[in-house]
Design a protein around this nucleic acid. Structure first.
Lengths: 221, 221
DNA sequence: AAGTCAACGTGGTCAGACCACCCATTTGAT
DNA sequence: ATCAAATGGGTGGTCTGACCACGTTGACTT
């Protein structure tokens, strides 16, 4: 038998990803059945299943009993739901998460001030008026407006992790949202960031003094 | 048979988590073998394995063939490693990659100026003197100095893909490195960033005017 | 033509087998 | 008595085949 130093199911995950790419499959498409994958890749079905479970946890596929396995729109994974009890242990890591999230959001806001489209601005205004604008939706729209798909995907993962690992339900009122939207309209980065910091600081538990003061302490240099 | 609406392996994950908590197991401890879990939970071993794969993916456990399964320090998730190829898949615009890499590096440099240790500074100085300091090594050290494991993992993935997808072999000489190291010593963020920008600009092909001018054009506000 | 239902394909699960590996113990030679 | 080699048991890693539960499809009935 072939010697495999790395775990087989990891290899299978990669092969399936390659297969998807080669066959040009997209969101919603059906991938080969477990039995067919097992045959094509010449591995046991149980190994294929372990690989599929991994992909499922990552939110890349969706399995429907009796139907098959389908490529899913990237997003809501099971993943984080399972972490609940455990995540409380790694305090140090939790700050890693919030810190990283903060940094990326700040970058995205800076970009958004230059790149956001009028369509997206109108969308935000409408949502704010009808009181349907949440912080999550605002941030997501801003990250999207950077027109950087990679940045968006990273943020989606971070945000999902963050939402299940933290009890952060801070709310902004209409005036806060309006201030941000007006800042975006004017392309005034500082104005938007100052408003953003008012609530972002609240979840930046530790070490925040290293990064947040980019405005408060800006003058000190 | 009992009707199970949710997937069995999800249930098993929860039960294992409960079991760990009840037994008061901590980091490094060994959890029951797959066969024993299968017996105690009255489920098939393959189902237990699917649950363990999930926990492994989340970085909560570590399996060692011939030894057993052990509770791991929550942190270095396999997650980002597996997510890497996926996140980057379908990123058509290479500029997304370089832009994201740039933003994260700039954030890390800002943090590094406050957090880098004297040990790390000495390391950089030695490497620079012996002409063994590459841009990659410099950046990696700076990212590490942020003491943010998540940030490090994201950067590692980005850098890896950047290096294979781009022919960027710009070199810095000793004086350039020295300028950066001196800036780090003094905690002078701007000084380091200005030097960093001199070569970072070179791989920021498009849209760079949106982000790079944070120093060049800073005065315009 | 519209409705019914049986066969098929799918994922979900189980049981048992064998392998590769680690480790502690026993065994053997020196 | 000492120490190295062989052994045996326990563990995760993988494969196979079987059965179940569910959705779809298409031929059959009405």
């Amino acid at each position: 038998m072939v010697v495999t130093s790395t775990k087989l199911y990891i290899e299978i995950v990669k092969k399936i990803q390659d297969m998807i790419q080669e066959d040009g499959l997209g969101i919603g498409d059906k991938i080969p059945s477990e039995r067919e994958l097992s045959e094509r890749l010449k591995v046991g079905r149980s190994s294929v299943r372990e690989a599929l479970r991994a992909l499922e946890l990552l939110g890349l596929i969706e399995t429907r009993r009796g139907e098959g396995t389908f490529i899913k729109d990237f997003g809501d994974h099971q993943l984080v739901q399972l972490l609940g009890p455990f995540i409380l242990q790694g305090i140090k890591k939790k700050s890693d998460l919030s810190e990283t999230k903060y940094l990326i959001e700040r970058d995205c806001i800076t970009l958004a001030c230059k790149r956001i489209s009028s369509t997206q601005l109108n969308f935000l205004e409408e949502k704010a008026l009808s009181n349907e604008l949440s912080i999550d939706l605002l941030l997501k729209t801003l990250v999207e407006s950077t027109d950087n798909l990679l940045l968006l995907r990273i943020w989606l993962v971070l945000n999902e992790y963050f939402n299940v690992s933290t009890a952060f339900d801070y709310k902004l009122n209409f005036l806060d949202f309006n201030e941000i939207i007006e800042g975006l309209k004017a392309g005034d980065t500082e104005r938007v960031l100052i408003e953003y910091n008012t609530f972002a600081k609240k979840y930046m538990n530790s070490r925040s003094e290293d990064i947040v003061p980019s405005f408060d302490g800006r003058k000190k240099i």
